[in-house]
Amino acid sequence: MVREVTGIRYVTPLREGGSVPGVVEADDLGTYVVKFVGAAQGRKALVAEMIAGELGRRLDLRVPELVRFDFDPVIGLGEPDQEIQDLLKASGGLNLGMDFLPGSLGFDPLVFTVDPAEASRIVWFDALIGNADRSWRNPNMLVWHRDLWLIDHGASLIWHHNWASAQAASAKPYDASDHALSRFSPDPAAVAEELAAKVTDDLLAEVTSLVPDEWLTGEPGFDTPDDVRAAYRELLGARAVDVHERITMAPGRREKQPPPEWLRPWVEGHADGKGSR
């Protein structure tokens, strides 16, 4: 199940991403990064976040907790930026929240080290969901408590923007040549059998059932939200079988550069297992 919380205080917008999510406190005393349904990417970005994030969690990857986030634009009336005000006003009702990880650092492949086995699992997962947004330019990963966490999957499942050509689009190769983890010698084929075995129809039915009906209602070409869920299950189930055969990796590795001086004590503590949580 995915919990539902209600926003009680709008804290600040996050301007790094194109969707301009916001940091919002909720009635469970938690703080969340909220992706708004009124953003330019629309509700399909929230669908992708929910399906990809919950699927990743069931594949034992670290994804911050996702919640159904009920948002009343009234709590954001103090926001001075008119464009963000317009976004908040267009996002009343059900949105998607991701647990805020305080003190986390953005992942830099030239600073942090990732175990090849973990890198292999993440590259395979990204290929499964067709994630085009995990390059070294924009890794969409955080380091928190010395662990690697995956965030921002709204650009995945790209084929759901045109269901008429979804089958053909899903069958295309996955280009991982500039993946943020390509320099850590990932071997997605080595983990494919293990991970694909977990992507059963029952698991996909569980994950897609978490998507609220209102984010799926009215999808062109489908009569009901359950019909849309079935389409996601069919594509992801078929893709899991052989997606590892269609992953293009980088031809070589770049030499690792030392971290900047200010970050070196933290990285050295991470490397030898020291440091506080």
Score class of each variant (00 low, 15 high):
R62P: 04
R62E: 14
V63M: 11
P64Q: 11
E65Q: 14
E65G: 09
L66S: 04
V67T: 09
V67N: 03
V67F: 06
V67Q: 05
F69S: 07
D70K: 05
D70R: 14
V74T: 13
G76A: 15
L77P: 02
L77R: 15
L77T: 15
G78A: 14
G78L: 15
P80I: 13
D81W: 11
D81H: 12
D81F: 07
Q82H: 12
Q82E: 13
E83C: 01
I84V: 15
I84Y: 13
I84D: 12
I84F: 12
Q85F: 07
Q85E: 11
L88W: 04
L88K: 09
K89P: 00
A90M: 10
S91E: 10
S91G: 07
S91C: 11
S91K: 04
G92K: 08
G92D: 09
G93S: 05
G93Q: 11
L94F: 03
L94W: 07
N95I: 02
N95Q: 09
N95W: 07
L96V: 15
L96K: 04
G97F: 01
M98V: 12
D99A: 15
F100D: 09
F100G: 03
F100K: 04
P102Y: 13
G103W: 06
S104H: 12
S104Y: 04
L105W: 04
G106L: 13
G106I: 06
G106F: 05
F107S: 01
D108V: 08
D108F: 11
D108I: 02
L110K: 12
V111M: 11
V111R: 05
V111G: 01
V111D: 09
F112N: 04
P116N: 10
P116K: 08
A117L: 13
A119F: 09
A119T: 08
A119Q: 07
A119S: 14
S120E: 09
R121F: 06
R121I: 04
R121V: 06
R121D: 08
I122W: 05
V123L: 10
W124D: 01
D126C: 05
D126F: 08
D126L: 03
A127R: 03
I129C: 02
I129T: 08
I129K: 03
N131V: 08
N131Y: 06
A132R: 14
D133R: 03
R134P: 00
S135C: 13
R137W: 11
N138D: 10
P139S: 11
N140I: 00
N140H: 02
L142N: 00
W144R: 00
D147L: 10
D147Q: 14
L150Y: 00
I151F: 08
D152K: 00
A155E: 10
A155R: 06
S156Q: 04
L157I: 06
L157V: 04
W159D: 05
H160C: 05
H160L: 03
H161Q: 08
H161E: 14
W163D: 04
W163T: 09
A164D: 14
S165Q: 13
Q167C: 07
Q167T: 13
Q167L: 13
